[in-house]
């Protein structure tokens, strides 16, 4: 073919030029996600920041800037102190239990046995169920008259035939119940994450440890745990964030009672801001969680990056 016969290719249309553009295509594809995040997270967050500095309430017609007055009054409120303590107590205790239980479960589930698939499914079920429905289920199970737990304790002769337990009516029992439900709810995710981490360790490493003479505890603590630790941290941080921000379990089971002994920051912010109409006070309480969660998020991202590298 001679050079004269070479014709210029027809110019591409607008859309195919766009699809080939390395400059614009990524921006266009990312735009919906960014808009969504700004609208659903950024907007409310800024609103909360602004509310926290004003005297806005549901019924107010005029809004005044009050500086840090809301935060000051929240800090002076003994109820807030108790809610903060409860939040941290709930998060640490429930996640501590989750770490131990999830590790045990994951190591057990890694073995081959009959019906393993069904056991895995059953363990994952609480995660699949909506939190509110699960919590309502627990509300019935913890009922002071019809509680199936009380019935089982009676059957096992831990309780007399006419004894009753006010699971949600006494401060310590109520907190214990909430922790129990929180563990029930976050355990599946932690177990699944850990199972993934465990199965990413090559079998050769376990065989080598066995050859090298490591017994159960040395094998577990010096080989298995350090190798799943980066992934385990992700599970712990997720669980911690869920446990500190969740209010559904508290709201469904106790509404913060009895006598506000199970009130957590998230439920307190809700009761004051939404139920009580004090938007500014609710926003100030909610914002106290922010530094804690921000640190958790930063740690989470760093850990996630480190696991990518190795």
């Amino acid at each position: 073919m001679s050079a004269d016969a070479v014709a210029a290719a027809p110019p591409p249309g607008f859309f195919s030029r766009l699809a080939d553009s390395e400059e614009w295509l990524p921006r266009i594809l990312l735009a919906p996600a960014i808009l969504y995040i700004v609208a659903s997270v950024g907007g409310p967050f800024i609103a909360a920041l602004v509310y926290g500095l004003t005297d806005v309430s549901i019924s107010s017609t005029a809004v005044h800037f009050v500086g840090l007055a809301n935060f000051r009054s929240v800090i002076e409120d003994p109820g807030f102190h108790r809610a903060l303590r409860n939040t941290l107590f709930l998060a640490f205790v429930s996640q501590g239990l989750v770490i131990v239980l999830a590790s045990t479960l994951a190591i057990a589930l890694q073995r081959d046995f009959r019906g393993k698939w069904w056991v895995r499914l059953l363990i994952l079920l609480p995660w699949v169920a909506p939190i509110s429905l699960g919590s309502i289920g627990w509300l019935w199970m913890l009922d002071s008259i019809y509680s199936v737990l009380t019935w089982m304790l009676r059957w096992a002769h831990f309780l007399g035939p006419w004894d009753r337990v006010a699971w949600l009516g006494r401060p310590n029992l109520a907190m214990g119940s909430i922790i129990g439900v929180q563990v029930w709810r976050t355990l599946p995710l932690a177990t699944v994450i850990l199972l993934g981490g465990l199965s990413s360790i090559p079998q050769d490493i376990h065989d080598q440890a066995e050859i090298d003479g490591a017994r159960f505890w040395r094998h577990l603590l010096q080989i298995t745990v350090p190798l799943v630790l980066p992934i385990q941290l992700v599970a712990i941080l997720f669980g911690f964030v869920f446990a500190t921000t969740d209010m559904i379990v508290v709201w469904v089971l106790t509404r913060g009672g009895p006598y506000d002994t199970t009130q957590v920051l998230a439920s307190m912010a809700f009761f004051r801001g939404i139920d009580g109409g004090d938007l500014a006070g609710g926003a100030a309480i909610a914002l106290f969680l922010f530094p804690v969660l921000a640190i958790a998020a930063v740690v989470l991202l760093r850990v996630a990056r480190r696991t990518e590298v190795t």
Binding site: P202, D204, I205, D207, Q208, A209, E210, I211, D212, G213, A214, R215, I223, P226, L227, T310
Partner: peptide, 19 residues
């Protein structure tokens, strides 16, 4: 068990403990 057989083994992957 392996630890009482007085043997040492090198695997194809070397199975070094990465941490």
């Amino acid at each position: 068990p392996p630890r009482e057989r007085k043997i040492a083994m090198v695997f194809q992957s070397y199975a070094l403990y990465p941490h």
